[in-house]
Structure formats: C-alpha cells, structure tokens
C-alpha cells in the first residue's frame, strides 16, 4: 500500500484529527494559564466528582433492585448516599454555572462548551425528577400525580407517562445516565480542547 492510500483511510484520518485537536498534553495538561487561580474553578471538578459518586451509589442500589432500600438499613444508607451526592451534584453544578456566566466563558469559540453544559444541566434535572418518581414511596406517588398535569398539558404525557413506574425507572437508570455521561464527556473534552477562557481584556471595551 502506498502512503497516500494509508493517509486516505478513515481510521488514519480520524486518528490524525483527534491527535491534532486533542494531543495528550491538552487532554491531561500539567500546566494551566496563570490566570486560573480562584476557588471558583473547583466547582466544575466537584460536579464531576459528585456525578461519579451519584453513579456509583446508583449502581449499588441496582444490585438488589428498586425495593431493597425500603427493607434494609444498609440499603437505606446507600439511598442516603445517593440523595446527598445528588444534592452536592446540583449544588456544585449551579455554582459552576454562575461562575462560568460571570467569566463569559463562551468567548473565544467556546459556545458549544457552554451549550453542552446547559444541556447536561437540563438532562440532570430530568434524571433527578425520574429518580424522585421511582422511589416507590409516598413521595413518588405525590410527585408523579402532580407532575403529570404539567407534562400532560404540553402533550408530552402521551409518550412520557410519569405514572408508569417501569418507564420512569428505565429512564432514570439507563437513558438519562447515558445522556448525562455522554454530555459530560463531550463537555469536558471541549474544555480540554479549547482550554480555560482567558480574562476579559480591559482595553478591548473601547472597541464596542
């Protein structure tokens, strides 16, 4: 095979593209621009850490099935870990969002980073909601019978039946985690490709 033929292969082209966009030193950097020096930067990684714990505790809850946590004190404790890691997840994510807003973090070709972050937030809200209605207790009965009116009013209730436990549980433990993980992965990779947004140039305000 000639070199040009190898160069034209899909595999070669994909590898070169990935390596060009995201070389190892960008994927796992050992330095940061000097302006990255504030506590506000820790909330992105804190969100990621909380997501890992949410998924890990969710996996433990899956082992013995959806009713285990009502019957076992260990199960109930794992449920507590799941709940509190979710609270920390949203806590950190919202502060991360505020911080990125005030940095204007979409500047310099980072629009997709901002948008994937927002969609991750929306998917997480839906994931949290489906978790609440999958608890198989009074809480889930009440939340689902209330929420049905909202979603039915939009027409969405014809497909997304919040009173159908099986459907909600599937969304909660399969579809939405997959979406949240995929979106988070894209978001984090975009951050690595584009780097952290530089500070506003004070002089540049004269331009506009």
């Amino acid at each position: 095979m000639s070199t040009t033929e190898i160069d034209r292969q899909w595999t070669t082209r994909l590898r070169k593209r990935v390596a060009g966009k995201l070389p190892p030193e960008k994927l796992l950097p050992d330095t940061q621009p000097a302006y990255v020096s504030s506590w506000i930067y820790v909330f992105g990684v804190a969100t990621l850490a909380a997501l890992i714990i949410v998924i890990a505790t969710g996996c433990v809850l899956s082992i013995r099935g959806p009713l285990w946590w009502h019957q076992s004190s260990i199960g109930h404790f794992v449920n507590s870990l799941h709940l509190w890691s979710v609270e920390i997840f949203f806590f950190a994510m919202v502060i991360h969002l505020w911080g990125k807003f005030f940095m204007g973090a979409w500047r310099g070709g980072r629009t997709m980073t901002w948008m994937t972050g927002c969609v991750t937030f929306f998917a997480s809200i839906l994931a949290g909601f489906t978790g609440y209605v999958s608890q198989t207790n009074f809480d889930s009965q009440w939340i689902s019978t209330q929420a049905k009116d909202g979603i039915n009013a939009t027409g969405g209730g014809s497909i997304f039946n919040v009173l159908n436990l099986g459907q909600m549980l599937m969304w909660h433990i399969v579809l939405l985690p997959l979406a949240a993980i995929a979106l988070t992965a894209v978001h984090v990779l975009l951050v690595r490709v584009k780097g952290v947004v530089p500070p506003y140039e004070e002089d540049s305000e004269i331009v506009q």
């Binding site: 000097a34 020096s37 806590f91 911080g99």
Partner: peptide
C-alpha cells in the same frame, strides 16, 4: 439552607484567596 449555602459558597469562592498558584510561575 441549601440555597443560602449555595449563595454563601459562591461569594466565598469569589472572595477567598486561592492558595498555591499565585507565587510560583513556570514559564512556558
């Protein structure tokens, strides 16, 4: 309490000095 803590944490994150990075610059 949760929402209050979020606001307090956000303001603290803006105001508190971040340790370590400021002093040692590696030129690259």
């Amino acid at each position: 309490v949760v929402i209050g803590l979020m606001v307090v944490t956000f303001i603290a994150a803006l105001l508190l000095p971040f340790p370590g990075r400021g002093g040692r610059k590696a030129s690259k």
